[in-house]
Amino acid sequence: MKLFSTPKEEILFPDSLKTDEEGFHFFSYLIKETQKKKRFILNFEHVEWVEANLCAVLGAIVATNTKTYGAKFEFVNMKNSYLETTLRNNGFLKEITGEERDTRKSSAVPYQEFSMKNEEVVEEYIFKYVLLKEEVPKMSKGAKKKIYRSIFELYQNSVLHSGADQVFVCGQFFRYKGRMALTMVEIGKTFEENVKSCYLEFEHFSGADCLNWAVKSGNTTKPETETGGLGLDLIRDFLKMNQGKLQIRSGNGYWIEKNGMTNFEECERSFCGSIVNIEFNLRDKNEYFLSEELDANSLL
């Protein structure tokens, strides 16, 4: 909601920001609204609840529109101590406001920006802040490996398809639910742009249709000499067993799979990039044993 427009523009945040369609709807509005060389006051006056992993989306918007359009942002009215603590613990406030003290808490999966070329740093981050967390070691070795693989499949998807320079990542442990969410955001090519530029016959597809096509096994927008289209399918298979959740918001499309149920729909507002949220069940007791004996060279 805009309260006044000059010389500053104030944007009032909703009372609750969750990793759902409504939350993504707000961020789609925010990114579009702040694509100007202007000073924006982000007002948290009414905010009661923010899921910490969404800092990846907020950070991506602030960083991109600052760099691309010369927008300036000010965060005001963080009176709610829960909110301030949440954003301070995961390092978001330090990153955004430039406050000097390192306030990160070991329990958080911190907000971080990564260059697409800096894969080693991403690897270190996932290892340190996700896999070594006290909640995660309770899982089987097989389950942990699948979590790690899923995160890197997603990251490589961003590297290969978004055309962006950076990816923004933030996570959150939900201790009582025994779950962990990790959100990755890039401001770049949407799934729809990639699919339509590759396949002219999909011109009539909506953003949601493009998303639903892209998550299916073997579907890829890679050049003809390359192979792909397995990463997202692999993640979906694992999440079904793990009872996790995968959400993608890109362009006008929204796609979600939870407990094996898939839903996708077209949204009113477009998000000029992709938000991918993956949620793992950390109480997964599956061992993920191999069901068949294979020989590498006989596979060739």
């Binding site: 490996k145 790690y148 693989r149 890197f152 499949e153 490589q156 998807n157 290969l160 003809e224 000499t225 390359e226 192979t227 792909g228 397995l230 990463g231 692999l234």
Partner: peptide
């Protein structure tokens, strides 16, 4: 640990 993005690029592409 390997992922499909690595195996596609190193081995899968050979089949093209």
């Amino acid at each position: 640990l390997t992922i499909t993005a690595f195996l596609n690029a190193s081995i899968g592409k050979l089949y093209s």
